[in-house]
Amino acid sequence: MLDDYFDELDRRRFLMGSAAALGAGILAGTPASEAFGAKFPSRNIKVYVPTRHGGGASRNLEAFTSIWKNYLGVNFQASYYPGAAGRVGYEKYMGIAKPDCYELLFGNMGPEVLNWVVKKPTFDLNAYFYFGQMDRDPGQIFVSRKSKFKHIDEIVAEGKKRTIQIGVSRLAHPATLGALALGRHTGAKFNVIPLSGGKRTRAGVATGEMDCGALPSGGIARRGKNFRILAIFDDTNPIPDKIKNAVLVNKHFGMNLPPLVAGARAFGIKRAAVEKYPDRFKILIDTMNKVYGDPAYQKVLKKTKVPMALFTKSWSREGIDKYVKDITAIGEKYKDLLTGKS
């Protein structure tokens, strides 16, 4: 669009150019310097965020780009398109973003790829891919500090006698899949209740309407005074100093679930942009990788109050692709429960 027009236009040319030319330039919306084949990036980078401003994604994005911009020499402009669990933002990005490496996506991969399991989007799923994973926050099961349950085994045992109500953020979510898989494996009757977001899920558990909840771990671990985490859907406990006495589900119950990472924010880009401008994408990747090792970045992350161990220190395309494939596969396995159609 036109947003960046004046950023690139240097003042002298503006003063010298005629008003008519200026008007034509604005209406045409062609960034001036692009025509001159200038270096990449020569103007701000736009980021489509498929969630509300103020949530986990915007917090992480701001932290990352506040350092990344120093390496690229341009600013990042985030546009928020919340709605339909991220669907709106993806459709907007795939629909209107230009494939020129100046427009990126930033979302939470796990819950968002599960959207596509429930209902296919209007665009081709291979037309974009993720890169630059920022965090890795596994799903977990937690109870209120006031709950009578002190161990996951007690919940499973109770679940064999009566239905256990488990509050979840939404059905199509890695943490929800974990709870469903655990119920199916142990024969406990787990009924997942979507409460529309982490905040309301915590409220449902805190007020005792839910027996327990299943969410990413970070937000719960920080509220250790109110909640207790009982089980983690990952191969290791990422924050043993904050989460004590929680079991690892695979190990404890002899299951082999893939790591159900519920918080996995990463950038996304149109495949066409990378194919058309591989050199630009390489610049993005090279500069991005420098951010992970930058002490200033660690400092910014500390300010977010999220346990540092939940942020990744590096990433790989293979790792991301495997994660997306795993989450999609387990989503397909429970598709009947996610869509209410058997």
Partner: peptide
């Protein structure tokens, strides 16, 4: 943002 806002920002 239109021409006016861009001009002001600039």
């Amino acid at each position: 943002a239109g021409p006016f806002e861009q001009l002001m920002e600039w």
